[in-house]
Computed example of a mutant assay.
Amino acid sequence: MQKFGDGLIMVIAAGIMVWWVWRRFDRWLHEPPGARLRKLASEGNVVPDDTVALLEQHGYDTLTGKHKVPLGVIVDNGSVQRTQLFFDYLAQKDQKYYLVKLERARKPTEWTASGLRERFLVYALLFPDCEGIIVVDPQDRLVRTIRFKVEDDDE
């Protein structure tokens, strides 16, 4: 035979769990846009180098450096295959955030619409609050900004 106190403790514990889950859901639901980026911006540190100086010359404040985004890929209900997506810096200009990728000689950017889509669209989709993706070519000292726009199919 159960005692009255045991049932009361279970009801209180269940109430606390429901309250905690509701609070977490409510916090997630009302999280302001860009909160994920602001959290990233507060996490990292920046080591001053030529790229940071080049970004500053173009009016960008470099907030953090070297980030990796862990991803899992599942094919045909198989096991999860782990992979990572990297970006080099997070920068800010006029209260807008930008992901920064460095141009690498071993994998040059194809500057066509389809080449840019294949290489950089994933970043725009993972971080929709970003204003764009900045591609920095440290050798040629170029800073280029890429933005994606969904267009109507009427054309």
Score class of each variant (00 low, 15 high):
A41N: 04
D50H: 15
W28I: 11
G78F: 00
G34S: 04
L37P: 00
A41F: 03
T83M: 01
N77V: 02
L40S: 10
I74L: 01
T64C: 09
S79Y: 02
D50C: 14
L71Y: 03
Q57C: 09
V47S: 15
T62N: 04
L40P: 03
W28N: 09
Q57F: 06
E56P: 11
L54M: 10
V80Y: 00
K39R: 13
D50I: 11
V80D: 05
R36A: 12
E56R: 15
Q81W: 00
L63R: 04
D61H: 10
H30F: 11
D76L: 06
N45G: 15
K39T: 14
P33R: 10
R82Y: 02
K66D: 09
P48D: 07
G65F: 01
G65D: 05
T51R: 15
S79D: 06
V75D: 11
A35Y: 03
A35D: 03
H30R: 10
R82C: 00
G44N: 02
P32V: 07
D26R: 09
R82P: 00
H58P: 08
K66C: 09
G44L: 01
L40G: 09
T62A: 07
P70D: 05
V73T: 14
V46S: 10
G44A: 04
A53T: 13
D50F: 10
L71K: 10
G72I: 04
K68M: 05
P33S: 09
H30D: 11
R82A: 03
E31N: 06
Q84Y: 00
T51P: 06
V69I: 12
K39P: 01
V80R: 09
D76Q: 13
N77K: 15
L63K: 04
E56A: 14
D49Y: 06
L37K: 02
L40H: 05
K39Q: 13
W28G: 08
K68Y: 03
L85R: 04
D49T: 08
I74F: 00
P70F: 01
V47Y: 08
G59N: 05
V52H: 14
V46P: 04
L63G: 05
I74V: 08
G44Q: 01
G65V: 01
E31Y: 02
P33D: 07
R27Q: 10
G59V: 01
W28Q: 11
H67E: 08
W28Y: 11
K66R: 13
G78R: 05
L55C: 01
H30N: 13
A53Q: 14
S42G: 15
K68Q: 08
A53D: 08
R36E: 09
P33E: 08
H30C: 09
Q81C: 02
G78L: 00
R82D: 03
A41Y: 03
K66A: 14
E43F: 12
G34W: 01
T51H: 13
V69A: 07
T51L: 11
R38Q: 10
P70N: 05
G44K: 01
G65L: 02
T83S: 05
V47A: 15
D61W: 12
D49N: 15
G34K: 02
V52N: 13
V73E: 12
L71H: 08
R36H: 06
W28D: 13
D76M: 07
H58M: 11
N45T: 14
P33T: 07
E31F: 02
Q81P: 00
Y60V: 04
L40D: 08
T64P: 02
K68S: 11
H58G: 07
P32A: 10
